[in-house]
Amino acid sequence: MIINPETRKRWQRFKSLRRGYFSLLLMGAMIFASLFAELWINNRALLVVHQGHIYLPTYGDFLPGTTFGENYDWETNYRALAEKIKIEKNGDFILMPLIPYNPFENDFIEGEYPPYAPSAHNKHYLGTDTSGRDILARLVYGFRIAILFSLFLLAISYTAGISIGALMGYFGGKFDLITQRIIEILSNIPGLYVIMIIASIVTPSFWSLALLLAAFSWMGLTWYMRTETYREVNREYVTAAHSLGASHLRIITHHILPNTIAILITFFPFSVAAGITALTSLDYLGFGLPAPTPSWGELLQQGTDNLEYQWITASAVTALSLVLILVNFIGEAVREAFDPKTHTFYE
């Protein structure tokens, strides 16, 4: 967006709403941290100095055990390597991430059965799930997937919702009437059920699940977009633009859209929350992304099946609540910042 005075004013106003602003900062930090999760939650070392060679295994191809003089040709077990280096003290050096597990590997403790309770000693700070995978790792990677999923879902449903809504408002008439019916039909179909049917017969992928969900969630925006466009179309500037020979497309994208964007932004945080909730519910029921994708829904399901493993339930519920609360606080503040009407004069 072009930074015009109005936008700047809104931003100032948003910043002044401290609860929302701090929520945004925290949320931003969480997303940023999760995007680089490989650097702090990973079973690959950050840095290995072996016989004078320097290796940075985090990103890039796998390094077979033979690279470091081990007798196997699959991916190096860096935790074991770190132990070895610590004992041998032969000048090699290894730096492991803060949490030395990736979200897929099963870390089993000799003589004990998973799930393991939280333990700083094992570096499973939130414990493990029922197949011995680190919960914190799965929470963080699961968060990354959920947020990306939600954003992708939003990208599709917003694009569809905005363009169709704008067209409805702009053209009106029969097009409007027929599209209204289609929307009514779609919003009446129990989307979650349909997705469950489909997911039970074909295991969905990240993209196909997002597309499926989008197919049932783009309608929400169209109503607002339609009404806003409807209102804008009758304004003088649109009529003026039209008489100057501007095309329909140009009028919509250059004149109407910028003026309606404000209302769309206020929906954004809530839609993100809805996307995360939808993915979590589907995962909970076993109709979401296939195993072993890190997922909050799966953790919730493990937790509710086994309430005696409190750390699983507690981790999943806390994480979910935290994210949804942050998103809601942000959303509330955005709404307030973009909509001066909500400022009661009594303040």
Partner: peptide
Amino acid sequence: VFIGHAVPGYV
């Protein structure tokens, strides 16, 4: 209210 909203009813 948000915690109530975030924690699913079945949980």
